[in-house]
Nucleic acid binder design. Structure first.
Lengths: 345, 345
DNA sequence: GTGATGTGGGAAAGGGCTTTCCGCGAGCCC
DNA sequence: GGGCTCGCGGAAAGCCCTTTCCCACATCAC
């Protein structure tokens, strides 16, 4: 028995193997501001290679007082909206040589606070919160306090699409985007709108809804309040709303705007099942421009969001100098009209 | 200036605040096997609350010799296949009170080895590798060595859908699933097949392809080799293949099997653009049963994979006792026939 | 009353790394 | 040529925990 306790090689091992001190080994392997003679450096690098040394990241984190990590909090990573953002974050993190850790809240606000605590324990460089969180949740003060403590300790908290909290945020022009969409739809002839929205406690939903209504108003169109439906902010929520429309006032509608592509797709499926033809009987539009949904039929009019870029921006924003962060321009949200809204005349 | 160096509260602070020793504080907060008098425990818990103490996870990791973490390696988190698996992993990890860290390889094998090294540095409990990796890549030996070292040091490596390596693995019945699909399609009358596959170096692709061919053979059907197309294992790969079919032998085809739903969707979009009607002119089937793609029209026949469950199983498998791991049963892969393959007679 | 047994707090030794600080030899100036 | 700075290796302190080990004290049995 030679290896009673198999354990990864430590920096000590490397130093011994190379015949140098611990300090020199450390300096050689991660380049400090102190120079190391090339001959020593080579010896260390070779020893490390020979021993298949991997630095113990937690140990580095504890010695440096922070870990090379960015933490991302999402509602549901299986949702394409979040997975696209996550891809952007992962990519940027990789470039900055950071590892990404992820928490999933399952859309429960109390999980969110818990997870922030847990993630904070990692002492990450950055915490990015991408859940479209609930406005006025009981947990909000706790969350704010948790994040403030985190920032005081030197971390950076960044929200995505949540400009109402005292933290940096990548703001998304939800409001402007859906306003422009409303105007565009009105301009190609739609008049009788129905809105399929999520819970109004979600800021994202609220912004998209208000923006759309603004756009309608601007074109002199009123929304019948009965035609503002509110369901879960999911595919099934969209389907339920559509079922309700079919059962009742679908005759009075020539255009359905859903708060997200995912909801729009659910609604379209239900409309089809109910014999309502899209876009002949009614047009449908969504929001987000989810890449994987681009191939549905008829192709969905929507507002394009550069989701990956949003993830990347969040990471950049975290490292931006403090004075540059006051008001980063919002991410563009461009209207894309496709086959689901050919227009009415 | 009272707080020259704002830093999170440490366990020392808590102990001092509570008037007990460091040891007692530690024992109170994470319950060791040593008992702590309730009165002391309470004092500690309250002090911790007062100071908003969060344990420094890296420090715990270094003291305990491993971090409460599971690492997941995926090709592309924006791909719904991987994001669904990730959701399962995240969920299971959360239940086990572990934090999930993620690496994205962008489908580059050399990134994979790099990332395994980096993730290994975290000293996670588990490393899950979900990329459908390249067979016989030059990097495979390095990867194996890296993971072996990791396991020797006490970690658990788990592959998803990669049963050819000397590690635990959640195996997916790709072969059986596509064989059954082929048989089912033959049984409803399809005879002239085209296969839209990804690179044959991907084990997943190879299994699906061979399984399908087996099924065809079983029904006495031969595949014209010209009708086996190989493109990128992506949406655009599917589209390219479809374009090629349209340009040539589409007349000889009544059924297109794509190696994944994503490819199938790309192909369908291209067929539609080229004026080939699905399913009237040609049927289309995919593989995976991606939830977000269930609403496309016509609804896609496919082989259902319980992706979230696969993620969960991977975590469970990592913690399973060693003797239970030799051959966990493969995940089921059930054929689901929908509107894209109504049958021929 | 005395020794055996147990209980649980606290001091201290890690655990793997970074970084400060010390000291020594080499090069420099006048 | 003597006093200096400068460059760079190495010893050691420190980061924040966990866990072992010691010990004081209480309980109990006979």
């Amino acid at each position: 028995m030679n290896d009673a306790k198999p354990r990864p090689a430590t920096l000590d091992d490397v130093a011994r193997e190379a015949g140098v001190s611990l300090a020199t080994a450390s300096r050689s392997l991660n380049g400090s501001n102190r120079k190391v003679a090339e001959s020593y450096r080579q010896k260390v690098l070779q020893a490390a290679e020979r021993l298949r040394y991997t630095p113990n990241l937690p140990a580095q984190a504890v010695a440096r007082g922070g870990s090379a990590t960015v933490s991302l909090l999402v509602s549901d990573i299986a949702d394409p909206y979040f997975s696209s953002i996550a891809a952007g974050v992962a990519r940027s993190a990789g470039q900055a040589n950071l590892i990404m850790t992820m928490g999933m809240t399952d859309r429960r606000p109390e999980r969110e606070v818990q997870l922030v605590r847990a993630l904070r324990g990692q002492r990450p460089q950055v915490i990015i919160i991408a859940g479209s969180r609930v406005l006025d949740a009981d947990e909000t003060p706790a969350l704010i306090e948790e994040l403030s403590a985190y920032e005081e300790a030197g971390g950076h908290a960044v929200f995505i699409g949540r400009h109402d909290l005292p933290f940096r945020s990548v703001s998304i022009d939800n409001r402007g985007g859906s306003k422009r969409l409303a105007v565009a739809l009105a301009d190609i002839g739609y008049r009788r709108f129905a809105l399929v929205m999520g819970p109004s406690a979600l800021l994202t939903v609220r912004d998209r809804e208000e923006g759309f209504l603004e756009g309608l108003t601007e074109r002199g169109i009123n929304l019948d309040p009965r035609l503002l439906l509110r369901r879960d902010f999911t595919r099934d929520g969209g389907a339920h709303a559509a079922r309700e429309l079919i059962a009742g006032p679908i005759q009075d509608v020539d255009m359905i705007f859903a708060a997200s592509d995912v909801m729009a797709v659910g609604a379209m499926a239900e409309l089809r099942a109910g014999g309502v033809r899209v876009p002949d009987h009614v047009g449908v539009a969504g929001f987000d421009d989810i890449p994987n949904l681009r191939d549905i039929t008829p192709s969905l009019s929507t507002v394009h969001l550069p989701l990956e870029e949003i993830g990347q921006r969040a990471v950049q924003l975290a490292f931006a100098p403090t004075d540059a962060i006051t008001s980063p321009p919002p991410v563009t949200a461009d209207v894309v009209l496709r086959d689901s809204t050919p227009g009415r005349r």
